[in-house]
Write a protein that binds this DNA or RNA. Structure first.
Length: 243
DNA sequence: AACAGCATCAACCGCCCATGC
DNA sequence: GGCATGGGCGGTTGATGCTGT
């Protein structure tokens, strides 16, 4: 990418006009973004490639969600922040439709000032700590099949049920000191899941990409909620099970 | 109505990483 | 291996709108 600032060579800066947006959308819809540096020249835009890329990625591309953050979104972002710090792109990966820029702005204007982080100071990048934790956990006997992801009961959407959780790829304990053996004591955990298929007595509940689940357990009983689970489907399954 | 202070967020800058030569 | 380049990311800024006085 060009190292010189965008204003050189007479390129425009500042707020995008509707006409510019339309040109960019029309070009990308027809030809795609094969080369951001060359794109503005062919699209008829007096902008640098970086500016075009930013505009498209953060505002113009399809299926972008803006605003309307739910309480669950807030909690998810805070939890992810505690895990990975200011890696906004990594957080955005887990929230379909959200951009790193939007989450970053939302953090700075809402979540940060609410003082929701009691345990981890703002700005601390915990990636290394998380890596060490994952390494430690990956060597843990708790990953054996009888303990890792199967045959717990869950309180997702406030209902109790039995389920088997498939495709659990990472097992994280984010509360050091409470990582105790299921079947013995009160314990807690969080699960980082990717396209998990949650099955309840033969019913399959879809999930939307990666997400977090949180739970507490006593013995092998596990109260669990997975954020990306389709709660409407869960409710339907529950109704059918209760018939 | 006018102004100041604050909040929001779009946009830019500079750096880093991956890739190709 | 070294360099050039493009893409991506996080931090920061500045324009704009909102709210209170």
């Amino acid at each position: 990418m060009v190292r010189t600032p965008c204003e050189k060579n007479g390129l425009r800066k500042g707020t995008w006009t509707q006409e510019e947006d339309e040109k960019l959308i029309a070009y990308i819809k027809r030809y795609g973004h094969w080369n951001w540096r060359q794109l503005p020249k062919y699209a008829g835009l007096q902008r640098c490639g970086k500016s075009c890329r930013l505009r498209w990625m953060n505002y113009l591309r399809p299926n972008i969600k803006r605003g309307n953050y739910t309480q669950q979104d807030d909690e998810f972002i805070i939890n992810m922040y505690q895990q990975v710090g200011t890696k906004w792109a990594r957080i955005a990966e887990k929230l379909p439709g959200r951009t790193d820029s939007d989450i970053k702005n939302y953090w700075h204007t809402n979540l940060k000032k609410r003082g929701k982080l009691q345990n981890n100071p703002v700005g601390v990048d915990k990636s290394d700590e998380m890596d060490r934790m994952l390494q430690q956990i990956s060597e843990s006997p708790l990953l054996s099949p009888e303990y890792s992801c199967r045959d717990f009961s869950t309180s997702s959407t406030d209902h109790q049920m039995n389920f088997a959780l498939e495709d659990c790829f990472t097992y994280i304990d984010n509360s050091p000191g409470s990582f105790e053996t299921p079947g013995q004591n009160l314990w807690s955990e969080s699960l980082l899941l990717d396209n998990a298929e949650i099955q309840i007595n033969g019913f399959s509940i879809p999930s939307e990409g990666p997400g977090f689940g949180f739970g507490f357990g006593i013995g092998n009983s596990f109260a669990f909620h997975y954020d990306n689970t389709d709660d409407l489907v869960v409710d339907q399954v529950i109704k059918e099970l209760l018939v």
